[in-house]
Design a binder for these strands. Structure first.
Lengths: 330, 330
DNA sequence: GCCCAGGATGGCATCGCTAACATCGGCACC
DNA sequence: GGTGCCGATGTTAGCGATGCCATCCTGGGC
């Protein structure tokens, strides 16, 4: 290969790595041979020699929840653009044991950085005792932890949702919350609560859900019997879906009798009955930010304390617009 | 490390790899040192020396569609159990260029085997010219191709759905199909068609959808105006969701006026209005089978022509049960 | 008591690449 | 025209494991 181009393998290496000190002519000649022979460098050897694997590790919940799945692909795309491979390990649950084990598997692969899509409040604990020097970024982790975090501003999103309902004239807004050990769930509760308090509205105790449509349905069965529950903010779209069905079955019309808002803007939510007002999160942006932070840390060598917060956006649809016309309108 | 245990690094290597010719005592001593020092072997070095990376590559559509996402996690879990790492590359679309590029990235990482979750009819083309010797398994690929394939029996699933409706007394069943370049979509069309033909029922032209709720909604707007369309089989749950809304808006009650069946059994489909009869696929099983085939090929060295077909299962819910009681029943 | 088989170990080469240093020109400068 | 410096290239060592072969020790058979 090297002798084919009439140079040393070192020069080939330099061409491959874009070193500055190579004559343009030589570079071109080597490049030509590379292309012609279809040569591909061996990643393992490169990793061994340089200590750089050009691989990022992703620890993700093995869920098909819309957020985590979207984020994963966002990270993969961004990593690819930045020249990194992506190795994934799934964890089934939050327990520190699993996260620890997943991280160990990834470090075994000598990944250069770690993205953890494990949006549990307990995640930082598990992340705390990592081998130093390994850049980590948590997605939706506890911002109080000492690892850099990329989050969507859940508080803001919940506030948008709540204020949207309040400004439509509802006296207060009920809330179906996500599981309390999820960071997002907490943020949404707190945004909702603060919007209510700021408006001087009554704060009813949030109902406990677990993101599933079933839990939304069950909460809905309760809420349907509360005449005062005229505006409801569900912490995600799936729970809102269950809620919609419960309300429907109890004969409470949405939005005429009850207004509903969800969170996530899953691709389907625009086709619920009725179409769901919800909060959209830019997961691709999250992925990009994660990779950006990781790459920065890799470049600086320093563990930045950065925190990227991405603003969510309210998507208004019919489920929250009581005066939006007849229920058959689009 | 080796000298710490008073043996050569060679013996350490043997212990690590469970070679037979190590005295039990020595093994124990070395193992103790390993545990105590928290030693972890370097994957890159191992890969370089042995040529085995213990990594499987997954090429997946960067979609959050339920099927692909579930399959990915199924593969990851099975690979982990089998002692393999998983590296993923996403592709945004089917074009051969993307798939080729994705595969190249993975082979660069010297993965030992490849799983391709790119259920397009054109995928086999792109897979055809791989470096020989690299095991590949396609998920939902064209069974006519020459790569081993793991599929859910789409034809059977569609037949189950269609026959379920026919046996409920409907004269025929309309179909909203998925995009024609998807293998699954074709299989579902053909199962549906064959069930109809076998029953001597009229075969109406399938409506073209693209898996999205929107496309189901649009198809529904057409179907709602066809009085004869009293039983509809949508090729996935999301399209069924859109369909349900279109029917609802046009005042056609489900299941009283129109029966609907979907496909996938997404976690939400039991909470649609009304709950959706659908076909469940065992994606975890698919993942297991994929890894199994890959590992087998790795062991045999041979490129097996295996084909694993997983049977789907009909999940009956209210959307197809006209006589199931009042619409408020669970 | 000697020899041999075979299991347990150590040594050497090697995987494919990169880092660090050595080397070799050519150009600018005085 | 000599000196010096810098840019382009070659040379030499590893990176941390494994594979193969040599070596050594042990026990059994005669």
């Amino acid at each position: 290969m090297a002798r084919f181009a009439g140079v040393s393998h070192q020069t080939v290496s330099r061409v491959l790595n874009n070193h500055p000190n190579v004559r343009e002519l030589t570079r071109a000649r080597v490049q030509a041979v590379i292309d012609q022979l279809g040569y591909r460098p061996n990643t393992a050897a490169r990793a061994l020699a340089s200590g750089k694997s050009k691989t990022l590790g992703v620890v993700a919940l093995d869920s098909t929840l819309f957020g985590p799945a979207s984020t994963l692909w966002g990270i993969e795309r961004a990593a690819r653009r930045a020249g990194y491979f992506v190795s994934v390990v799934s964890v089934r649950s939050i327990d520190r044991q699993s996260v620890r084990e997943a991280v160990r598997r990834l470090t075994d692969q000598s990944v250069e950085g770690l993205a953890v899509i494990a949006p549990f409040t307990s995640a930082p604990d598990a992340l705390a005792k990592l081998p130093t020097g390994m850049p980590v970024v948590a997605v939706e982790g506890d911002p109080e932890g000492d690892v850099p975090v990329v989050t969507v501003d859940q508080v803001e999103g919940a506030r948008l949702a709540t204020e949207h309902l309040l400004s439509a004239g509802y006296a207060t807004v009920f809330h179906i919350a996500g599981p309390p050990d999820w960071q997002e769930a907490r943020g949404r509760v707190s945004g909702w609560r603060s919007a209510l308090e700021q408006a001087g509205a009554e704060v009813t105790p949030p109902l406990a859900g677990n993101w599933s449509a079933r839990s939304g349905y069950e909460a809905g069965q309760v809420l349907a019997q509360i005449p005062d529950a005229r505006a409801i903010f569900a912490a995600n779209d799936h729970m809102a879906l269950g809620l919609l069905r419960a309300l429907y079955e109890r004969g409470r019309r949405v939005p005429e009798d009850v207004a509903v808002v969800g969170f996530d803007d899953t691709p389907e939510s625009g086709y619920y009955i009725p179409p769901l007002t919800t909060v959209r999160q830019d997961f691709a942006g999250v992925g990009r930010a994660v990779v950006q932070l990781l790459v920065d840390q890799l470049a600086n060598g320093a563990r930045t304390e950065d925190r990227v917060v991405i603003k969510p956006k309210l998507i208004c649809r019919r489920s929250s617009m009581a005066d939006a016309g007849p229920p058959t309108a689009h």
